[in-house]
């Protein structure tokens, strides 16, 4: 296999992911509507309850909507990552995973390509959201739209890789409801997405440390700082490290000699 063939394979996998995203209308719409519901209803409600003081990267008092926008960007990517892992589990039950795995390319490459494909989709979604959020007066500096891109890619990679890990260890589709309860909700709520961590610290030190240990918090902060043209090296480091860790676990999970497929096999 030549490098050109690798590129063609990657291109084909990304294209399929994009086609599936746009042609499954329900998925397409809910991906767009979900964060807007949070912004239009949840944030509007909390607007009057929560005041956010001046904390970096903001240099002035900000309305609550502005505070949660980066958290919602990360949420888009979290859902997207879980969505793609859901589709992997679905693919495996339905067999289309096999089509991918009988490709002559190395399995780590196929999984990485699958991951990159889901990141492309999630980054596009994030920008569509930023475009609409502008009408809610979420107006980061123009340069922020550019500097947020690497942050979105990195956090998309981490959450997509987490999805891959989960998909390699979940046995059946029915178990996926558990992922919602035990992964998405705790990750989202025990993070800095909805409330600044200094406030959490005031109410519960334990919860504060849980939030700090949550890689999702770091994804949110990475995006938050990047959106305002600033770097958060700690967050970037944590997110990059977790990406690598999750990816290694996913490749292990899909290894033909180990992992779930070998232990359980395909229905016979």
């Amino acid at each position: 296999m030549t490098p050109v063939q690798y590129l063609r394979c990657l291109g084909g996998i990304v294209k399929r992911e994009a086609l599936r995203w746009t042609q499954q209308r329900g998925r397409f719409l809910s991906a767009l509507v979900r964060p807007l519901v949070w912004l239009a209803i949840f944030a509007a409600g909390f607007h009057f309850v929560l005041g956010v003081s001046i904390i970096p990267p903001y240099d002035t008092y900000i309305p609550y909507e502005v505070y949660i926008a980066p958290g919602l960007l990360a949420m888009i990517q979290l859902f997207n990552g879980m969505q793609s892992s859901l589709s992997m589990v679905y693919d495996r039950e339905m067999g289309s995973m096999k089509t991918l795995l009988v490709s002559p390319f190395p399995r780590w490459f196929l999984l990485t390509a699958k991951l990159l494909a889901s990141v492309v989709v999630s980054v596009v979604q994030a920008y569509i959201f930023l475009g609409i959020a502008w009408f809610w007066e979420i107006e980061p500096p123009p340069l922020g739209y550019l500097t947020v891109l690497p942050a979105l890619i990195l956090s998309g990679l981490m959450l997509g890789a987490l999805g891959l890990v989960l998909s390699s260890f979940i046995r059946q589709l029915e178990n996926f409801a558990g992922v919602m309860n035990f992964v998405i909700f705790p990750m989202f709520f025990a993070s800095s997405a909805l409330y600044p961590l200094w406030r959490v610290k005031e109410s519960s030190l334990t919860l504060y440390w849980i939030c700090q240990a949550n890689p999702f918090s770091h994804a949110v902060e990475l995006i938050r700082f990047a959106l305002y043209g600033q770097a958060d090296p700690l967050a970037a480091g944590v997110v990059a490290g977790c990406t690598l860790l999750f990816m290694i676990m996913a490749v292990w999970g899909y290894d033909p000699g180990r992992g779930l497929l070998a232990r359980r096999g395909g229905g016979d």
Binding site: I13, K15, L19, G95, K98, T99
Partner: peptide, 27 residues
């Protein structure tokens, strides 16, 4: 494979093109 493994929402050609790319064939 025993079970159908086509993407139902994609066209016939899109399905085949995806498969071709998995073998490094494109264009």
């Amino acid at each position: 494979f025993q079970q159908s493994t086509l993407d139902l929402d994609l066209t016939v050609r899109q399905n085949l093109a995806y498969h071709a790319s998995l073998h490094g064939i494109a264009g």
